[in-house]
Amino acid sequence: MPTTEKKSLLVVVRRSPYGSSLARTSLEVALSGTTFEQDVGVLFMGDGVLHLLPGQDTGALGVRNIAKLIASFPLYELDSLFADETALRHHGIAQHQALPQNIEWLDTGAIAELLTRYDHIMSF
């Protein structure tokens, strides 16, 4: 018998925004989850924290702007956002530089605990 209760979903983004198609795909999956009123979290890890840099200008590339997509998250009530503070330091980004401001920065132990809080993890 299929189970029908809602399952919580964590989307883990580990790739930089424009170097691979998986990056944007992962965010679209997260947004799809919210449109179906699923409990969705997004964790930016490793090169994935580079999504959070402001001032992305993709005009010359002819690709969609991922920073704008992330800025639209509140419209979809996608507000469980987490990021890896080790990756932040590794990439030399100060927390105040990164968007959005409501992101929760986690150390390694907190990330390990976060992974246990969700029914399913989709990692990209």
């Binding site: 029908t4 979903l9 999956v29 699923q38 399913h120």
Partner: peptide, 15 residues
């Protein structure tokens, strides 16, 4: 569409 993936996650014990 991606809705089928989300639906699959609702319905499944393991993803």
């Amino acid at each position: 569409g991606l809705g089928q993936l989300i639906d699959a996650s609702f319905t499944s014990d393991r993803l």
